[in-house]
Design a protein around this nucleic acid. Structure first.
Lengths: 242, 242
DNA sequence: ATAATTTTTGACTTCAAGTCAAAATAGTTC
DNA sequence: GAACTATTTTGACTTGAAGTCAAAAATTAT
């Protein structure tokens, strides 16, 4: 008798509906403007039903963010499995990251928010665990690429610590997106380009500094960027600008 | 008759008291836990008096953050006026930045917060202007150092765009602090060191990538870090660990 | 001393998160 | 298919904090 299973499936579907709708609203107006009364009306359930699924507003936001992190993991997996030199594979992670931030411009500020103590502490333990495992998966793909880079002699761990490089790249990405979401910082550019426009250039500055071969003086990473877009993310990029 | 002046001075002092107390409370428990009823009790004024000074809770937080930005500007000014090669001066900015984040560990998340649309839009125009000018001052000191680096032939603008480098360094700093404040990200380190511990190493990776002379293969920036601490920030660092 | 002005405040409104007992619905048993 | 049980849903409620305002208190001017 599959009644329990069917019910569970329905519950799952309902939850996904809630998460998807909350995602839309978050994309629209951000966390502080997210109103559960409004969301309840939108999904045509009562607010109390929402609280049947999520322990708090924060818990709901964590669920949305976990979904985003799943997608990031998918993109990084593709990058990791890509048949290319290690430096191209790590670059592909960056391109996937950038793609995600175009598809879901609010994903960066959400994951910041969710990892801050005041939000995190109000989330349920199961959802915290799930988010952590999704995030772990993202890091595991990075680490694998770093490991291969050393194994394949593209990177000398004596010259630059692989873990350091990982944190450098993550910092660059997070920082650039942060600046991009900031209302004041952008203004200090004298050119029209801003932190996010320079992100890939700065990746390569850092990787050149670490002497991760091939250096950007040896190959043209602008062309390689195009190649990676086509090889790994052609559908997604095509769908971006309709 | 200096009655108006005296009153203005008293008002100013009162405001500083409010800001200082709010700063303490923010350092303690963060933005979401900041309660204006509690703050009013603490400073022994009514909440309505607080609203006589600040148009909203957000406006108060912006005032706190502006004070922090003033200090950052002071540190960057010191770095800019330092009699040393350009690369040491830009490094000194990084050291000042890091110092500030030790003195005021909450300053980073506050300035993030304040520049997000939902907060920024609830602040008064005069305080927005003030914050922007404080931030502008910080950038102006950076730009001056970049300009000098090119003028003194330490940096070739053909190889790496000075504006790009600025954004790279700012991204690295913001990103590392962001990670440091995140409850989940830190866990993915296999060593005990984390993003912030690697920050200066990554600065130098980036600056080496940009070929900003002297390269870290030519001089020992660990020693230079000690020198800068003593030359520019000795008092502040001494006061840090009581 | 008194009138005018400014400052301060307690009591209020508003809004959204979160709770809960009762109603509605679905499933089970005879 | 009626009666009983379990689960799900909900409207109406409580709570807590931001923000408002008219009146009281304090200060200054005449």
């Amino acid at each position: 008798m599959g009644v329990t299973e069917r019910k569970e499936r329905e519950r799952q579907l309902r939850e996904e509906l809630f998460i998807a709708e909350a995602d839309l609203m978050l994309a629209e107006n951000g966390y502080l403007a997210l109103n559960l009364d409004e969301l309840a009306k939108q999904v045509e359930y009562s607010k109390a039903t929402l609280y049947n699924h999520f322990t708090s507003k924060e818990d709901l936001v964590l669920a949305v963010t976990t979904k985003h992190m799943q997608t990031r993991g998918d993109y990084f997996e593709r990058a990791n499995l890509y048949q290319a030199p290690s430096r191209e594979r790590i670059f592909a992670c960056g391109i996937g990251d950038r793609l995600l931030s175009r598809q879901l411009p609010h994903s960066f500020s959400l994951s910041q928010l969710v990892c801050s103590p005041s939000i995190w502490s109000k989330c349920s333990a199961p959802r915290q665990k799930l988010f952590e495992s999704r995030e772990e998966r993202v890091f595991a793909h990075c680490s694998k690429i770093l490991y291969d880079a050393v194994a394949q002699n593209d990177l000398d761990p004596q010259k630059a610590d692989p873990e350091q490089i990982t944190w450098g790249l993550v910092s660059l990405s997070k920082g650039s997106h942060l600046i991009n979401n900031s209302l004041t910082l952008e203004q200090h550019s004298t050119s029209e380009r801003s932190a996010l426009d320079y992100l890939f250039d700065n990746y390569h500055l850092l990787l050149d500094g670490a002497q991760w071969r091939p250096l950007s003086s040896e190959v043209d990473y602008r062309n390689i960027e195009q190649k990676i877009r086509e090889d790994l993310f052609s559908q997604e990029f095509a769908a971006l600008n309709p």
